Computed example of a mutant assay.
Amino acid sequence: MIFSAKTCVGRVRSNNEDAFYVPPKNGNYPELFMVADGMGGHRGGEVASQMAVKEVSDYINARFSKDFNEDLIKAMINDSIMEANRKILMAAMDHEEWAGMGTTLTMVLFLGKKIFIGHVGDSRAYMIRNNTITQLTRDHSLVWQLMEEGRLTLDETRTHPMKNIITRALGTDRVLEPDFLEYDLEKNDIIVLCSDGLTNMLEDDEIKNIVCGQELETAAEMLIHAANLHGGIDNITVELIRAD
C-alpha cells in the first residue's frame, strides 16, 4: 500500500479544523484512512475532527480482524462512528465553548480486493481507475439533496449560496445514519479522500489530471498548491492511496 496525506490551513482561515488519519508505519494495523472537516465554536471544529479520527481509529484498531465478513465490517464501522458521535456530543455538553461543534468524516478500510467506506457529511472519497475519476460518496448537503431532487444542476451546486450547509455531521444529533459503501478494488486504483477545501476549489478532472501525472507525494503537494492558487478559502486536506 502506497499513500500520501497532506493538510493545509489555506489562505483565509486562521486555524486548521481538518484532521486526518493514516495507519502507523510500525505495527500490524488495519489499512484504515480518514479525513474529517470540523466546524463550530471556539476551537470546536478542530476538537471535533480530531476526536472523530481518534475515536474511530481506536475503536477499529482494537477490534478489526481480517476474518471479518461484510456484515461484521459494516457493524464495526457503524459502531465506531456512533461511538465517536456520542463522545463529541458529550464533550460539547461538558465545555460551553465547544457548543454546536461537529465534523464530517469519510473513512476507507482496505481489505483484500475490496474497500469499505463509512461516510458522514460532505468530505469525499473518489476512485481513479484507468484515467477516469469517480466520486464514490454522495454529499450530505442541502445543495446535493436539491440536485438529487432535480431542483439544481451539478454546476449550480458549485456556486449556490447555501452550498456549505451540510445535513449530516458527527456531534450534531444523537441519531446518526452513516452511509456504508463497498467497492471492488483493482491493482493501481487510486483512492482520493479529501475535505471540501479541495473540491470547492478544483474540478474533479483537475484532481484526476494532477494525481495521474505525478508520484503520490508530489501529487498531494500539488493538489494543495492548486487549491490555494484558486483561492484557498478553506482548510485543505487530501489523502491519496494506491492499491497494490
Rank of each mutant, 00 (worst) to 15 (best):
Ile2Tyr: 08
Lys6Phe: 02
Thr7Tyr: 03
Cys8Pro: 02
Gly10Phe: 11
Asn15Ala: 07
Glu17Tyr: 04
Phe20Ser: 06
Tyr21Met: 03
Tyr21Ser: 02
Val22Ala: 10
Pro23Glu: 13
Gly27Thr: 00
Pro30His: 00
Glu31Pro: 00
Phe33Asp: 04
Met34Trp: 01
Asp37Tyr: 05
Gly38Val: 03
Gly41Asn: 06
Gly41Pro: 10
Gly41Lys: 01
His42Trp: 04
Gly44Ala: 10
Gly44Leu: 05
Ser49Gly: 11
Lys54Gly: 02
Lys54His: 08
Val56Met: 13
Ser57Glu: 06
Asp58Cys: 00
Asp58Met: 00
Ile60Val: 14
Phe64Thr: 00
Ser65Thr: 01
Lys66Met: 05
Phe68Ala: 04
Glu70Leu: 09
Leu72Trp: 07
Lys74Thr: 04
Lys74Ile: 02
Ile77Met: 14
Ile77Glu: 07
Ile77Trp: 04
Ile81Pro: 02
Glu83Asn: 12
Asn85Pro: 06
Asn85Trp: 04
Ile88Phe: 08
Met90Lys: 12
Ala91His: 03
Ala92Cys: 12
Met93Asn: 11
His95Tyr: 09
Ala99Lys: 15
Met101Asn: 02
Thr106Trp: 10
Thr106His: 12
Thr106Gly: 12
Met107Asp: 03
Met107Gln: 05
Leu109Gly: 01
Phe110Thr: 00
Leu111Lys: 15
Lys114Tyr: 12
Gly118Pro: 06
Ser123His: 02
Arg124Phe: 06
Tyr126Pro: 04
Arg129Lys: 13
Asn131Val: 05
Leu136Asp: 13
Asp139Arg: 05
Asp139Asn: 12
His140Trp: 07
His140Gln: 11
Leu142Phe: 15
Trp144His: 15
Leu146Asp: 06
Leu146Thr: 01
Met147Gly: 00
Glu149Gly: 01
Arg151Val: 02
Asp155Thr: 03
Thr157Cys: 15
Arg158Val: 06
Thr159Ile: 11
His160Cys: 12
Asn164Phe: 05
Ile166Asn: 06
Thr167Ser: 11
Arg168Trp: 09
Leu170Met: 15
Gly171Gln: 09
Thr172Gly: 03
Arg174Gly: 13
Val175Leu: 14
Leu181Tyr: 09
Leu181Asp: 12
Leu181Cys: 12
Asp189Phe: 08
Asp189Pro: 07
Ile191Ala: 12
Asp196Ser: 07
Thr199Tyr: 05
Met201Tyr: 02
Met201Gln: 14
Asp204Ile: 05
Asp204Ala: 15
Ile207Asn: 07
Asn209Arg: 10
Cys212Phe: 06
Gly213His: 01
Leu216Ala: 09
Glu217Thr: 05
Ala219His: 01
Glu221Thr: 01
Ala227Glu: 10
Asn228Thr: 04
Leu229Lys: 15
His230Cys: 14
Asp234Asn: 12
Thr237Gly: 08
Glu239Asp: 15
Glu239Phe: 01
Glu239Thr: 03
Glu239Arg: 01
Ala243Arg: 02
Asp244Ala: 07
